[in-house]
Design a protein around this nucleic acid. Sequence first.
DNA 1: TACACGTGGAG
DNA 2: TCTCCAAGTGT
Length: 355
Amino acid sequence: MTATSPHSPLTPPHTTPPHTAPATAAAAPAPPAPAGAPPAESVPDREAPASALPASGGAAVTAGDPAALHTPVIAWFETNARDLPWRRPDAGAWGVMVSEFMLQQTPVSRVLPVYEQWLARWPRPADLAAEAPGEAVRAWGRLGYPRRALRLHGAAQAITERYDGDVPREHAQLLSLPGIGEYTAAAVASFAYGQRHAVLDTNVRRVFARAVTGVQYPPNATTAAERKLARALLPEDPGTAARWAASSMELGALVCTAKNEGCARCPIAARCAWRLAGKPAHEGPARRGQTYAGTDRQVRGRLLAVLRDAPGPVAQAVLDTVWNEPVQRARALDGLVADGLVEPLDNGLYRLPQG
DNA sequence: TACACGTGGAG
DNA sequence: TCTCCAAGTGT
């Protein structure tokens, strides 16, 4: 049965080549949105257009003409978009949602194999909801941030109970699900249902910071000004808005990256405010580097790795071997239990949560 | 608002 | 080797 949604606004009705490309996935053709595209009814995010944009002086800014940005970026996307499984027409809303959970802070290349296995095992929300949460944590493997697995499982249960097994279409409904915040709600509504939403992820924020605002990097946390700018740049037509969201995101992921600026390959290099300004270096304090070695996170990771790889309950003595500092070790284990990622049994054994 | 939360590849 | 960072969320 059809799992969930209609065709994605991001992919052509064409069938993908049998020998689909792997992680590195070269460019795959992504023709214009199909005519009788997605439903797309709701039109939130309405806001005054150009008003939010910085005053334009020369050719740089896109003030009164956001289309000057939309057209070349979307055209670039048609030719350079990666052929990713969650962008295929048959992915459905559930596929889109699963991919968004997995992609939170995790590279595409590492998500691909886990995504495929996940969807094969749990093709619908109800399938996952019927499993013990520990199975979700186990299948999550080494993607990192395993709480996401727990939340995805919780979201699947909520969808099964409250929405009759179908991924909800409304932004507010999506937002009410565990693990779904502002970004993911907008992404699912836009990518899966073709709605008009400002989809502000780290890629889009960087592209806007450079191309429109003229600075190398966006602020650490998303600001009201960024949201306003994103809404102002949103195309009126829902289908085009969804296309724009995917296109601007892909541009940030493939060309306008954090470490490199592929201006030579950029479709809007000619009007990029940052480039036109001579690419001034980032001002202000350097972003805080996240040290990992020796942190509770590392200990938690080791403890959970043991539980994931064990078929059943594990004795405390075994867990004790992963870290020699007892106080930190105990704190990490307690944290995992408090988070619901680990279930303590009454006989000194621990296991992944059963329900 | 700032910080906790995993993991591994790239430069 | 070591720093940076990858489609964020929750508190």
